[in-house]
Amino acid sequence: MTTGPRIEQLVTAGTFSLDGGTWDVDNNVWIVGDDEEVIVIDAAHDVEAIAAAVGARTLRAIVCTHAHNDHIDAAPALAERTGAPILLHADDLPLWRQTHPDRAPDGELTDGQTLTVAGTELQVLHTPGHAPGAVCLFAPALQALFSGDTLFAGGPGATGRSFSDFGTIIVSLREKLLTLPGATTVHTGHGPTTTIAEEAPHLPEWIDRGF
């Protein structure tokens, strides 16, 4: 029996490298769809584990919330295995090329674009700051936001490295994310989920602290 659209979480382990440093990280890989077809949000680290989680279902797209290496390192191998296109916002191509200089993404994500899988629409929100081409995906029917590294439980994503800017991420949060319905569950790129209602009241604190 076919079940309706759902959200599945896979946690993979690897490293994040930028500006000459490398750190061990655990990443959330999100799979959205049903028993027939899915999309993968952020193909991180472990192509075998991601492919196993997808199983026999059709993979419609590999969506990259941004192009830091820990979110895209398994994307080309997963695309080769499944035939699914890799989608990335064009502003993150310089970061993408640091990890995959010889393999470009297959398509562009743009602000306001709608992706559809298993009858469920996901709205692309361009949310620069953590990275210039960072995007989030909002699925109203699932009351879900896939925030990548733009918003976490407890604050915004880091902006202390190359290609990032604190003022820009604050604008993205204020104008694109914290205006979403409070009941929206935020599925983050690392760590636990949260909700818009939990995070929205803290924006002034983040600004004051230069989070």
Rank of each mutant, 00 (worst) to 15 (best):
residue 4 G to A: 14
residue 15 T to P: 00
residue 16 F to I: 00
residue 17 S to A: 14
residue 17 S to Q: 10
residue 18 L to N: 03
residue 19 D to M: 06
residue 19 D to C: 05
residue 21 G to N: 11
residue 23 W to S: 02
residue 25 V to H: 14
residue 27 N to T: 15
residue 27 N to P: 01
residue 28 N to D: 14
residue 29 V to Y: 11
residue 30 W to P: 11
residue 30 W to R: 11
residue 30 W to V: 09
residue 31 I to V: 13
residue 46 D to L: 11
residue 52 A to Q: 12
residue 53 A to E: 14
residue 55 G to W: 09
residue 58 T to R: 14
residue 63 V to M: 10
residue 71 H to F: 15
residue 74 A to G: 05
residue 85 P to S: 03
residue 85 P to Y: 01
residue 90 A to L: 07
residue 92 D to H: 01
residue 102 D to R: 10
residue 102 D to I: 01
residue 107 G to F: 10
residue 107 G to N: 06
residue 109 L to Y: 00
residue 112 G to C: 09
residue 115 L to P: 04
residue 118 A to C: 08
residue 118 A to V: 07
residue 119 G to K: 05
residue 122 L to Y: 12
residue 127 T to G: 03
residue 128 P to H: 07
residue 129 G to W: 08
residue 131 A to M: 12
residue 134 A to I: 09
residue 138 F to Y: 15
residue 140 P to L: 08
residue 141 A to E: 15
residue 143 Q to D: 11
residue 146 F to R: 10
residue 153 A to Y: 09
residue 155 G to H: 07
residue 165 D to W: 13
residue 167 G to P: 03
residue 169 I to G: 06
residue 170 I to M: 15
residue 172 S to H: 10
residue 172 S to E: 08
residue 175 E to I: 05
residue 175 E to D: 14
residue 175 E to Q: 09
residue 177 L to H: 05
residue 178 L to P: 06
residue 181 P to F: 09
residue 181 P to H: 13
residue 189 G to F: 15
residue 189 G to T: 13
residue 191 G to L: 00
residue 192 P to E: 12
residue 194 T to P: 06
residue 197 A to M: 00
residue 198 E to L: 13
residue 199 E to N: 15
residue 200 A to K: 14
residue 203 L to E: 06
residue 208 D to S: 13
